[in-house]
């Protein structure tokens, strides 16, 4: 989630009720300071925000009930809208509607796994994971062909790659964006 004011990563979610209108803001530290929110809010943050969050979540539950489905927490697209238009609203929709997307993708594409190019900035483990799977297939072939020396080499190489993925995993797990919402309010 990005700061509504400046677009840098937001770590404050600010919910307020103005004239009966519920406003849901995502802000970064700096912009929250500029608006004078961080300070003024802190003493009341707990109960007030919880109450407003509760209202917000109730509204979402209401939508869910009428649409008989989920809502993307990032962009607010409902399952009903997705079904009507066939279009998703943002990258997070792929998570939010994952369970029904999977069979849909299988029907449309005959596959649910991407095997094409990878952006140069994608985490390294995607590439290594692919390479490990390819080596695993070769290992099975080597064992069937009773090429044990080759098999041992392959096994070592796969182990090496797997350690790399684990290390890479923790390194790469720094989130690209802050969490999409939920009930976490850091004030």
């Amino acid at each position: 989630m990005r700061c509504d004011d400046c677009g840098s990563p937001a770590n404050i979610r600010y919910v307020e009720m103005v004239d009966g209108e519920l406003r849901d803001l995502h802000l970064c530290d700096d912009c929250a300071n500029t608006r004078g929110m961080a300070l003024s809010l802190s003493p009341f943050a707990g109960p007030l925000v919880d109450m407003l969050m509760g209202l917000l979540d109730e509204m979402r539950v209401g939508e869910e009930r009428t649409e008989d489905g989920r809502v993307c927490p990032e962009c607010g697209l409902t399952r009903g809208e997705f079904r009507r238009t066939g279009k998703l609203g943002c990258a997070s929709c792929y998570e939010a509607f994952g369970s029904e997307l999977k069979p849909l993708l299988r029907r449309v594409h005959g596959s649910t796994v991407h095997t094409g190019t990878i952006p140069s900035k994608a985490p390294r483990d995607i590439e290594t994971g692919r390479r490990a799977r390819a080596l695993q297939l070769e290992l099975e072939r080597a064992v069937r062909a009773e090429e044990y020396e080759r098999a041992a080499e392959l096994r070592d190489e796969i182990r090496r790659l797997e350690t790399e993925v684990e290390v890479g995993d923790t390194e790469d797990r720094t989130p690209v964006e802050s969490d999409a919402g939920g009930a976490n309010v850091d004030v």
Partner: peptide
């Protein structure tokens, strides 16, 4: 791409508005 961060998923590749373009 050098100056951009593309929306990409490990399993589903490049994420697109329409699921018929994903991957």
């Amino acid at each position: 791409e050098r100056n951009l961060q593309y929306a990409f998923s490990k399993n589903w590749g490049y994420l697109t508005s329409c699921p018929t373009n994903v991957g």
